Simulated assay, not measured.
Amino acid sequence: MTAFEPPVPNRQRVLVTGASRETGIGAAVARAHAARGAAVAVHCRADTAAGEAVAAKLPGSGHLTVTGDLGDPEQVARVVQEAVDGLGGLDVLVYNSGMYVEHPVTRTTYSEWQSLWRRHLDVNLLGAAHTAWCVVDHLMRRPEGPAGGRIVMIGSRGAYRGEPRTPAYGASKAGLHALAQSLAVDLAPHRIAVTALAVGFTRTDLTAGLLDDPETHEAVLAQHPLGRVADPSEIAAAAAWFTSAEAEWATGAVLHLNGGSYLH
């Protein structure tokens, strides 16, 4: 963990996982929260330098970086505790960590199939469940009580339209949406709101290859009535609203944020 300045009191304290890619959704979510005055813990899996670069560029002060593989339950607990210690507590979790590795069933060996399913579920679904447990445990024990806590899960339209090249990804994101809704009902009496975003195609460094390749560019755009894909800032704006005080009534919602490319 690397802290840039001491925690600042009376600010929303936010842990954003999977936020170390400057052009990614997680970094955009971190920027959106910092811009409205929050103190942010930027999580990265292994590249601490990249996480620190994102944190250093956030507006305001009091931000920090936490590092760990959220597919490992022990590392999850450490990451959350470091965020709690570094920020002086937590109010918000935005779970953006995820993996996407192609493994079509007809072109994958059985051993590869098992390994990739296990890893997708460990990171995309179980990692979210374990991180949420640790954050909820903190919210329930903090002196001011759990009310006002927020959890946002960054899901995918692939949970509904299917992911034939990456079936474990689609299944894990469907489970992520169900997890968010289950937690929303369970935690409502404690005034902890839980939501999810079913995100569509978004321009990041991970998707730039498809968007910049003439062979795939038109096929991707053809899915979208607006004739473009999302910018990470658009996803971040929705996440920031879901974590606001005004969004408590949205608990249990799964927002389909895909530019009309899939209607559900």
Rank of each mutant, 00 (worst) to 15 (best):
A240Q: 11
M153K: 02
A196F: 07
G51S: 04
L183T: 07
G89C: 05
L139W: 14
F242D: 04
A237F: 02
R31Q: 13
V92A: 01
A56L: 05
A250Q: 10
G252C: 10
W249T: 13
T166G: 09
G89W: 00
L93A: 06
N258L: 06
A196G: 08
L211D: 10
P225Q: 04
V105L: 15
V229L: 05
V123R: 09
A247S: 11
R31I: 09
I235C: 01
A30I: 07
T216K: 10
V16A: 12
V123S: 03
S233Y: 01
V135G: 01
L211M: 15
A38P: 13
E234Y: 02
T67W: 07
T243N: 04
A240C: 15
G148Y: 03
A236Q: 03
L15F: 11
G227T: 12
L125F: 11
S182K: 02
P59F: 12
G155Y: 03
E218I: 03
A39K: 01
V92D: 01
V79A: 12
A196T: 06
F242E: 08
D212N: 12
A41Y: 09
A35R: 14
R157E: 15
A132V: 10
P143T: 08
W117R: 02
D186F: 08
P104I: 06
M1L: 09
R107I: 00
A188R: 15
A32E: 08
P164N: 08
P214C: 10
A188W: 13
I192H: 03
A56Q: 12
N96L: 09
A208S: 14
S20P: 00
G51Y: 07
D213H: 01
A147T: 05
T251F: 10
A174C: 00
G88M: 06
V101Q: 12
C44G: 13
V66Q: 07
A171S: 11
S111A: 15
A184R: 01
V94D: 10
G227H: 09
E218L: 07
P143E: 13
K57N: 09
P225E: 02
A230S: 15
G60S: 07
A168R: 10
V194K: 07
V79T: 13
G26A: 08
L93C: 13
A178F: 06
W113E: 01
G145L: 13
A240R: 15
Y160L: 14
R150Y: 08
A245M: 00
L15C: 08
C44P: 00
A39M: 15
G252A: 13
